[in-house]
Design a protein around this nucleic acid. Structure first.
Lengths: 233, 233
DNA sequence: GCCCGATTCAAACAACTGTTTATATTGTAC
DNA sequence: GTACAATATAAACAGTTGTTTGAATCGGGC
């Protein structure tokens, strides 16, 4: 990292390792993936993990930061775009919908197993990553941006209630993300999978339709509550 | 297990092991707890785990089944009680509130680290437990009971939308449960913990108040949406 | 007393973990 | 070509994992 002049060959194996780690961690979780698994998946030597990163945990940290940074930027720019082009009469649905869609897109929009489960695991797990920096840099800005946008879109919603409402919206986004991942992790003919699809038929469709259906529902449900509970101005 | 006549001494160490496992798994997760940790916490020999249960995974399975069974029964009886005594005019809030309160009570009502995180981990994790039986026996009945109660309380809500609405409610319950656990897992002066409490001041209060505040919010929020979106009869 | 099945225990087992070492191999500057 | 740093490799390391073994102990029945 001292000079950006020469380095070119290492970049390959480093990113190869990062990519493999992201996919494997998302699939099976941190503890279930050994350094040897990572090395094999990336077609590099086992020692490479400790040479390029310093230990397995640091690799996880870098994976998370990389993914979450793009997710944060995605959400922030989507929010900014929505706010600037928000028509006056349905500004609420516009802003909330944009936020939800951006998150879902980044979370399960890709065909590969996503990072969202990885984040969930990482936050569950005991000390695998120091959550402080991560939380401050990546979660807080999105929350505040969303909070500000919501305030602008629906001034009648007081600040202390806004926290509750945002929590409820985030809860739904996470939950539906999790359901999609969970479904995909099950075998095609699993009883559980069939039950899940019976309970939520949208799970049987393809990714794109699911994201759209979920976004529409959360937006409709949450905005209806907001409109019913708080005065328009 | 052949005869119920003699057995008395083993029962002690077996339940001691179950209790220790439940607490440790909930605290640190399945992989982070070694068989030796379990044995030490229960004050039994390491081999006891493989003698009474057959392997560590089986112990986890029995822990989960035991806990989730009581949780299921708790939710079902709470729902039944609420339905029988539901006054006509606010039957919706009554039923939804009872359901939410029962779940939160079982999830984070105890002072010990709860089983909810354990369940979440178990469902996340790859193959640690066969989810099929577990899901069919423990999740499905509660879902169906809640669905039936909701139909009775608000007939205007069509079945396919009911699935979505229930998912949104469950999402919130899980999320707020998770937030409480997450907060408790962090050290008192952690920056993240302070941020979380700033975003959701109720997290700073005690357990009882938190459960009450969360139940009230989810009920209010969700029922407002239902009333706004669907005709009363 | 003796016997017998059920339980407990300390010790050892084989497999796997993340990490390090010492040796090659590479690419580039001179 | 040689020299040099950066990177890749195979082998070994020390520690932990879940599980098994075989002997010791317990608890009554007779």
């Amino acid at each position: 990292m001292t000079g950006t002049s020469t380095g070119h060959s290492s970049h390959d194996t480093k990113t190869r390792l990062l990519d493999a780690a992201e996919e494997l961690f998302a699939q099976k979780g941190f503890d279930e993936v050994s350094v040897r698994d990572l090395a094999a998946a990336a077609s590099v030597n086992v020692a490479a993990v400790n040479y390029h990163f310093q230990g397995k945990e640091n690799l996880l940290r870098e994976v998370i930061v990389r993914r979450f940074t793009t997710q944060r930027n995605l959400a922030l720019s989507a929010l900014e775009g929505a706010m600037s082009r928000a028509p006056e009469h349905d500004g609420l649905e516009w802003v909330v919908g944009a936020m939800i869609r951006a998150y879902l897109q980044g979370a399960i929009g890709d065909e590969k197993p996503t990072f969202m489960g990885l984040i969930a695991r990482g936050m569950h797990s005991s000390g695998h990553l120091t959550p402080d920096v991560f939380f401050q840099e990546l979660v807080v800005p999105v929350f505040q941006a969303f909070s500000g946008a919501l305030q602008a879109a629906w001034p009648g919603l007081p600040e202390e209630d806004r926290h509750w409402v945002i929590a409820s919206i985030v809860a739904q986004v996470h939950h539906f993300t999790f359901r999609w991942e969970k479904k995909n992790a099950l075998s095609e003919d699993s009883e559980t999978r069939q039950s899940m699809q019976r309970f939520l038929p949208a799970l049987a469709g393809d990714r794109k339709d699911y994201i759209e259906a979920v976004s529409a529902h959360i937006t409709r449900f949450s905005c209806a509550a907001i409109r019913a509970l708080y005065p328009e101005v």
